[in-house]
Amino acid sequence: KLLSSIEQACDICRLKKLKCSKEKPKCAKCLKNNWECRYSPKTKRSPLTRAHLTEVESRLERLE
C-alpha cells in the first residue's frame, strides 16, 4: 500500500492505542462500548529543516 492511502484509526482508538477496525460511521470498538466515534483530519507533519537536523546532530555528539 502507498503511504498516502493508509487509513487512520478513529480518535479514541488512537488515543487509547487500540486496534481500530476503521469502519465508518462507527468502528467496532466504539460501537461495542457506545463511545462517540470521530475521525479527525490527518495532520500534516512539517518537513525537517536543516537547522533542526544540525541541532539534533550536535546534541547527539555531546551525549556520545
Rank of each mutant, 00 (worst) to 15 (best):
1 K>H: 11
1 K>W: 01
2 L>Q: 15
2 L>T: 10
2 L>F: 08
2 L>M: 15
3 L>Y: 13
4 S>L: 13
4 S>I: 13
4 S>P: 12
4 S>M: 14
5 S>K: 09
5 S>A: 12
5 S>Y: 10
5 S>W: 04
6 I>N: 10
6 I>S: 12
7 E>V: 10
8 Q>R: 06
8 Q>I: 08
8 Q>D: 05
10 C>I: 02
10 C>V: 01
10 C>K: 07
11 D>Q: 10
11 D>T: 01
12 I>Y: 14
13 C>P: 03
13 C>D: 01
14 R>S: 07
14 R>V: 04
14 R>Q: 03
15 L>C: 14
15 L>G: 12
16 K>N: 08
16 K>E: 00
16 K>S: 00
16 K>T: 00
16 K>W: 04
17 K>Q: 07
18 L>T: 09
18 L>N: 10
20 C>E: 07
20 C>Q: 04
20 C>Y: 04
20 C>I: 06
21 S>P: 04
21 S>I: 03
21 S>H: 00
22 K>F: 05
22 K>I: 03
22 K>R: 10
23 E>Y: 03
23 E>D: 13
24 K>M: 15
24 K>C: 12
26 K>C: 14
26 K>L: 15
26 K>G: 14
27 C>P: 06
27 C>R: 08
27 C>G: 04
27 C>M: 00
28 A>S: 06
28 A>Q: 14
28 A>D: 09
28 A>G: 11
28 A>L: 12
29 K>V: 02
29 K>L: 07
29 K>E: 02
30 C>I: 07
30 C>Y: 05
30 C>V: 05
31 L>Y: 14
31 L>V: 12
31 L>W: 14
32 K>I: 09
32 K>E: 09
32 K>A: 09
32 K>N: 11
33 N>I: 02
33 N>H: 11
34 N>F: 14
34 N>C: 14
36 E>A: 12
36 E>F: 08
36 E>V: 14
38 R>S: 13
38 R>C: 15
39 Y>K: 02
39 Y>E: 06
39 Y>A: 05
39 Y>D: 03
40 S>A: 07
41 P>K: 06
41 P>I: 03
41 P>H: 06
42 K>T: 08
42 K>C: 07
43 T>V: 13
45 R>Q: 09
45 R>F: 01
45 R>S: 01
45 R>L: 03
45 R>C: 03
46 S>K: 00
46 S>H: 00
46 S>V: 01
46 S>E: 00
46 S>G: 01
46 S>T: 12
47 P>N: 01
48 L>C: 05
49 T>C: 07
49 T>Q: 08
49 T>H: 08
51 A>W: 02
51 A>H: 10
53 L>A: 00
53 L>H: 01
53 L>M: 15
54 T>M: 09
54 T>H: 05
54 T>D: 09
55 E>N: 11
55 E>D: 14
55 E>S: 12
56 V>W: 00
57 E>H: 07
59 R>Q: 11
59 R>N: 05
59 R>H: 05
59 R>D: 00
59 R>W: 02
60 L>M: 12
60 L>F: 06
61 E>C: 13
61 E>T: 14
61 E>S: 12
61 E>Q: 13
61 E>V: 15
62 R>Q: 11
62 R>F: 12
62 R>D: 00
62 R>N: 06
63 L>M: 13
64 E>T: 14
64 E>P: 08
64 E>R: 09
